[in-house]
Design a protein around this nucleic acid. Structure first.
Lengths: 252, 252
DNA sequence: AAGTATGTTGCAACATATGCAACACCCATT
DNA sequence: AATGGGTGTTGCATATGTTGCAACATACTT
């Protein structure tokens, strides 16, 4: 809606891929060098962009501070955290918390496994949306037309042979998840890693976040992991209740 | 340099303090509602701002993704991480890694203490710059006029009676740190927590990052903590060497 | 049903962002 | 030393894009 701002903001994802110099930025934006310079300067003044000693630009530190403050404003996270830690204490595996926003699912909290073999993931990283247990839970709660719209827009990368192959399969899986109230990812993202997850609901029953427990095959089999399901669901329900209590209906 | 972009970006820190509606944003920006609307829409399209169900705006999820990618581009962090983990394995305490950028010091990595009593800190959070060991190390490496300029611009909050009280004391402390090549924070931020830190240097000898080990009094006394100093310094030097190797002088 | 608060749109007037061309600078190369 | 290509930077005239306005929606109160 605002061309100038639009151009300026387009610089950020561009720099996220790695440092770039003025010429590169200008070229990839399709604008004159002097224009790019002025946009970069403005971003710089706000700390979103940093100029390295070789003159190239990269993303700036203020970005962290902002992301930090943003995450601290998410009350689900605050409420959930201690419960996630408690769950990790009991089972030892990696615990994740994720939300859905603007067609993306992303982790907003994580408690690391106590086992030496850890899976790679990171708060803030977009989740593999077609296979992750938390993604299924969050999308399953959308209305039917929304689900279809999203499902059709997605790519279905075959991380493994067990990955969700296409929109039809994904929609079917979402229906199952919606019905049963929990979800799994059995080797769909990485061959040797399994997850089980449960939804966290607001006072109105809508899914506002999802949590999961992940563990590699070498530590526990999928069957053993599934025995944790009741515990995971109970934890999710506890968080839901606490969240609903804190966020009274119709009060802002 | 660009008024429009400047205004748009000013919205972000504003929203960092909490959700706000259109009117509030417009007022605090000093522009007309319609202008604010268009700026917010642009931010929204880029995912930096999210519109909650009560129509209010808050910071968006893309911000995390960006911050995440930003931190992954910092090669110091990548190189240092395994060494920080190893250090934590040996001593058990919380280990931090921090950098200086644009008048701010911030944590870019952290390995949690193995002890049950943990200190509060978070990657991305700006560091208490006048007292933290890592901050002293990073600032001590600036040129004398730079140090003076920064020292005079800072506030000196008295977190505890042992906090650095003013610019003069801070500059004196920086001189000491610069001389000895390591730094401490003995109860300057929180009464019961002590830290020791060491600098990480690039190929040209300049300090590019700083690391520290922190532990509360109830776990180890300050004297005991200081016995770890040689280990901390060795770790910092190892990281420095590796970093200097990876970043050859005058290349890229 | 009228009234208030909020978000939204179209438009005309102006301010502002734009590309250009010229300049400054750094470091290779000869 | 001097030349040349590469980069980043500045001033300026043009017109493009942004602005505030006023009118319109819409939702929630009284």
């Amino acid at each position: 809606m605002s061309q100038t701002v639009d151009r300026a903001l387009s610089i950020l994802p561009l720099l996220a891929q790695g440092p770039a110099d003025l010429g590169q930025v200008a070229e990839r934006l399709g604008v004159h060098k002097s224009t790019a310079l002025r946009l970069l300067r403005t971003l710089h003044e706000h700390g979103l962009v940093y100029r390295q000693r070789d003159q190239r630009y990269r993303l700036g530190a203020r970005l962290f501070a902002l992301a930090q403050e943003a995450v601290e404003n998410l009350d689900v996270r605050e409420i959930a955290h201690s419960h996630l830690v408690a769950l990790n204490d009991r089972c030892g595996h990696t615990v994740h918390l994720a939300v859905y926003e603007e067609q993306e699912v992303l982790y907003i909290d994580k408690v690391e496994s106590r086992y030496p073999v850890r899976m790679y993931s990171r708060i803030g990283k977009p989740v593999a949306i077609t296979v992750a247990a938390v993604a299924k839970l969050l999308l399953a709660d959308l209305t039917e037309p929304e689900r279809r719209a999203v499902a059709e827009k997605l790519d279905y990368p075959l991380y493994t042979p067990r990955s969700t192959p296409n929109a039809a399969a994904f929609l079917k899986e979402l229906a199952v998840v919606r019905e049963q109230g929990w979800a799994t990812d059995l080797g769909g993202h990485e061959e040797s890693i399994n997850c089980i997850g449960a939804p966290i609901r607001g006072a109105d029953g809508r899914v506002i976040a999802a949590m999961s427990v992940s563990a590699p095959n070498v530590v526990v089999t999928a069957e053993e992991l599934l025995t944790l399901l009741p515990l995971v669901r109970r934890t999710a329900e506890t968080i839901s209740r606490e969240y609903s209590g804190a966020n009274r209906p119709r009060k802002a």
